[in-house]
Every structure is written in C-alpha cells, then in structure tokens.
Nucleic acid binder design. Structure first.
Lengths: 240, 240
DNA sequence: CGGAGAGTTGAGAAACCTCAAAGCAGGTGG
DNA sequence: CCACCTGCTTTGAGGTTTCTCAACTCTCCG
C-alpha cells in the first residue's frame, strides 16, 4: 500500500479519483491508466448524512472515495443496525451489490465527501482486456473478505478494550498510509456508530475511552484522539 | 441457487465438481462449460482433520468442495482462534488468499472430503474470454462479502439464543438447497467450533441447545439435530 | 475394559448492558 | 449576539448475560 502511495507516477496517473485501491500494486501501462481514468470521470459530491446508496437499490457502479468519510451499515428487521465499515479516501465501496445486482447495505457520508463512480460493466470489460487490472480487481475484493475476517475475529473473541484498541490502531494505520499523523486524528463517527461497528453499546465505548485516558494511553476530547502510548495500545490487541 | 440445482443440464455439465457456486446463475455455453470442466479436473481427497491449506501458504488455486465438510479459521497471536465459516459441497473456498498471494486462514476437513482444484490464473484467463463466467466469479466473491456482513451482524448485535437460531436456520437452508432435509441433519462440528464461529463459549452453546430443547423448538442428541418448530425458531432471529 | 475427547450441568464471577441524569457543543431563530 | 434546543457524550448504579471453573457423563476406539 505504502509503495503505491509513495510512487508519484501512479499517484498522478490516478489523480482523478484518488484511486489508491485500484492503482497500487499494479503496473498499469499508460494506455491502461488513461482508459481507467476515462472510466472514472463521473464524480459526485455528498453532504454529511447523504446516502451514497441504499439497501435494495439496483447495482450499477462501484464507488471510489476521493475525499471525505463514509460508513456502511446493514439493517436488521427489528430496527437494529450493524455498521460494517468506515471508508476513507482511496477506498472502494459497493462490492456487496455484485452478488445480487442490488445493494445489500446503506452507505452514508459522515462528512462532506466526493466520490468517483466506476460503472461496473465497463470496469469488467476493461479488466478483460488488461490482466493486470483484472487481477487487481480480484485483489480488492479479496482484501474486503480478509478485512471482514479480521472484524469477525474482533467481534467473536475480543473484549471491549481490545476491540477499541484494535479499532484505533486500524484508523491510525490508515491515516498514516494517507500521509496524515498516525497519532493524532479526528473521529468522524459518533460513539454509537463506533459501538455498532465494534459490537458494543455507546456507553461502553465512552467508558473505554475514558479508561484508556486514565491510564495514559491516549488523550480524548470528544472526537479528537491523540495516541500517547502506541506500544502499550498494541499490547492490548496482541497480548494479555 | 435453487434454479441451478434443479436444472439437470447445468448439473450434469458441472458434474465433475459439484460446482453449484460456479454454475448456477450463468448460462454457460457448451464450449465454455467444457473448458471449465477441463480446468477443474484435478481432484484431491482429505480425511477428517486434514488441512486443505494453511495460513501463510502460497496461493495457487481456489477449491470447490465436491463432498464433505470444511471449516475455515483465522489464528490470533495469543493462540485464540476464530472460525470464519463452515463450507459444504458446491461451495468455493480460498478467495481470502487472492489479496496477498498467500492464504490468510486455515481450511480443515471436518469429515472425509473431496475437492476440485481450480488453478486461479487459468480461471482468470478463462473469465477474460467469457464475460458470463467473469461476472459469475465476481458474484461468488461478492456473495462471500455479503455473507461476512451477515456474520458481523450476528456477532455484533445478537444474543446467544438468536445467534444459535440463526446458525441452525442457515444450516437448514443450505442442506435444503442441496436436497437434504431442512429439519433433520447432522452437525459436523464440535460445540467449541460452533462457539468460536458464533462468538460464544462452548458451554454457552451447549446450554442454549438444551434450552431450545426444553422449549420444544428442537431435539438435540449430541450431533443430531431435529428442528421441531421452525417458525418459532425463525421468530428468535427476526423478532423479539 | 479403559482412556481420551466431547458434551452437559451447576455455581459464582466478570463483563457488559440498561436506565437515568447531567454536561457540552453546535446550530437556529428571535 | 444571545438563548434555546437538539443531539452527542460522559458518568453512575444496578441488572443481565455470558464466562470461568469444576465435576460429571457419554461415546467412540483401540
């Protein structure tokens, strides 16, 4: 991941969409990149709270996040919701919809955001021409599966402190990969949304933040987080 | 799913591998099917407890389960393990490995089993030739993502009874789709493995089984399950 | 027949949830 | 510009669920 981001040529080639996910590990040729850029030329902006897509809507395109922050959630009959992920610039969302030609979750902007639309049939056509792009598309989908397994591990076998530590370290790593500080960042989501993602109630999330702060692991002021002791935070996830 | 399984021509065409997942919704032409069959000609058998692949091994192929039963699990540093899925005939496993060219979990046979190997580079080549197959491969991967979201919902927001009910109903539906009884079946996995999958301890799984039996929802005798009241079992997952 | 692995059941402990109250921040309208 | 309202966050107290530890049973195999 870091390689691609630090590779100026790839970055420029994909500048239209911040397509880190699509660009990184592939050696896309000039023509290939040009046509990929043409594919992703349609952009849309969203305000905080807007839906990028809703559960049940027909599937047409994947979306690359250019700027901003999204969450995806699945709704349960009893009104219960489960946040399945938080997405940041350079990440691709919408792959859940391929299986049934309809979206199976909602995607909602957590702040003002801009996305690139990638019409899926045209992406498939292009990937039939370019094996490198084809393999890369497969890698993106596979990475989503691996990511989900990690969350299953978190939800299935970690305690509250471990879950929150893992969550913060994941955010830290992703901000860092985008050139932002790994230790100080702004949470775009509410305690309730973090709780839904981590399988905890919002009060437990809040208490665990306070607990971490008491022990000098981090400073929290509502949405502002500063990690003070990265090593000890890591030891929560791996060890103990 | 049901359509494909009930369509004899598709079934025969894919007879070599029980490739329900690969065959179902596509209208594969004769030549297409023939070449897919050629691709999947290499078969392997496994005994209960054998590893189909291990975490860290290089990625070469996907695997279609012909007969038998597998589990996949990810291992955590502290020796903790999380079962990420149970796979039955007609399902494809190994897609986690595409992202990093190495398997990210273990796949272990729960009973004597037979699989078809699908060399991934050849599958990609074939899917560049046949858009129907290409789209279908994407659907299989997408379905895996959707399935994982369902498990995240289960792990993140259901209580023990709801989790076990959802698990049993899912097994029931999958057995049913394969022509077996939806109400009476044999569990191939231990209480511990069910517990790991559902984010519960084995004792909790055992107690919840007993609890369901006391209330006349099902009969359990160790690994033999008979669902007595499907409707009430369903109401556990949706309602309450 | 004995041993090992798997499953059941009980009692007490721990983690997390629920309900409730109060504080804080940001936006809106007077 | 200020007051107020709304939604988010924090903190406390008590309740529930699930876990832990332990003992016992069952079943399958050698």
């Amino acid at each position: 991941m870091q390689n691609a981001i630090n590779n100026p040529s790839l970055r420029i080639a994909c500048s239209s969409c911040n397509l880190r996910e699509l660009c990184l590990p592939v050696d896309l040729g000039g023509q290939e990149m040009e046509r990929l850029d043409a594919l992703t030329s349609r952009k849309r902006t969203f305000q905080r709270g807007d839906y990028l897509y809703r559960c049940g809507e027909g599937f047409r395109a994947l979306y690359a996040i250019r700027t901003g922050f999204f969450k995806t959630q699945v709704l349960h009959e009893a009104g219960r919701e489960q946040v399945t992920g938080f997405q940041m610039p350079g990440e691709i969302i919408g792959m859940d919809a391929i299986s049934s030609d309809a979206h199976t979750c909602d995607a909602i902007a957590l702040e003002d955001s801009e996305i690139c639309e990638i019409p899926f049939d045209r992406l498939e056509a292009l990937s039939r021409e370019f094996p490198g792009l084809q393999r890369h598309l497969h890698k993106i989908m596979s990475r989503e599966i691996v990511r989900d397994h990690g969350i299953m591990m978190l939800l299935g076998s970690m305690r509250a402190e471990e879950r929150l530590a893992a969550f913060l370290l994941n955010l830290s790593q992703r901000f860092s990969a985008r050139g932002y500080s790994p230790t100080a960042f702004n949470l775009r989501m509410t305690r309730q949304e973090i709780g839904s993602y981590l399988g905890l109630k919002l009060e437990t999330v809040s208490r665990t933040f306070s607990h971490f702060q008491e022990h000098g692991l981090l400073n929290v002021k509502v949405r502002e987080v500063e990690i003070m002791d990265m090593l000890r935070l890591r030891s929560f996830v791996g060890g103990t």
